[in-house]
Amino acid sequence: MTRTWTRWLPAAAVPVVVAASVTLAGSSAGADELPDRTPEQVLTLLASHDHQPLSGEFTQTSDLGLPSLPGDLPGTDDATTGVLTALDLIDSDHTGRVFVGEQDQARVQVFDTFGERDVIVDGDQAWFYDSGDDTATHLTAPENAEDAEHTQQTPTLTPEQLAQHVIEAADPSTALTIGENVQVAGRTAYDLVLTPRSTDTLVGQVSIAVDGETGLPLQVTITARGQSDPALQVGYTSLDLTAPDAGLFDFTPPSGTTVEEVTPGQHDGQGIAPGEQSPVEHVGTGWDSVLLAPAGTLDLSSQPVLAQLTTAVDGGHAVSTNLLSLLITDDGQVRLGAVPVEALQAVR
């Protein structure tokens, strides 16, 4: 038994092989060369991409630094549940799939461990389905909606003009650069990087991976100032540019599902009627801008869950994350911005 150590070689070799294959898979990034382009040319590419049928899987990872949310709380009203659901969608990690078919067909699936949430759009019909509580919402666009949409789009811009406009509008506040090409979902993409010129915002940089071939946006990454890991990243993990089965967009809610019918534009009381001024104000410019909802919008004492999420600060209660801050002042004004809480407190 002099050479017994050789019997352990396979056990040593396996981790080496695994590590090597993981490294190889990671380092194949940037294998394909793309012609160099300026930010403006990449924006043009992004703006000019044709309608592209596709099916793809995506992941969203978030590290916003929000306090973890209570899962199921007794005595929460619909509005609070809605807020918590929205927060959960942003704050937690998700995987799902996207399908795009003909011109106005799309389906997005968000996977839950034991369920799924689906949004299906087919022409003027839209469905939202949640398998968790077996509910569906059916939206039917008003008859003339499509025409209205078309007339609104009449002053068409060429992609080049659009890119030009975006750059001009962004330039005072944002530096646009092109980073190293990135690999997303096995495709080589330009990395369009938006860096705020302001130092007051919490946003460090936003980068958009633009597919070198089709101009499709493949991944969006938002990094908070002073952080190396992305605060929010949504991107494809696999992408197939063939048209998916048309049957996917033809949704009929399964029997036993609670269906709610909604026709936009026929809302009474809720939402903002056309012509009426939105009560939400906008203060500041660029990345430092702050949204203000007037006093009395939110009464924390009637929202125990939100009260639990916030911490008391000078002048109200605040939630601060790596990217966004929210301040609810004592008189019920809501202030939201990609700035530190101190900047929210300093408004007016």
Partner: peptide
Amino acid sequence: ATLLSGDV
């Protein structure tokens, strides 16, 4: 059978 996606 109803699948998670709501399709039957």
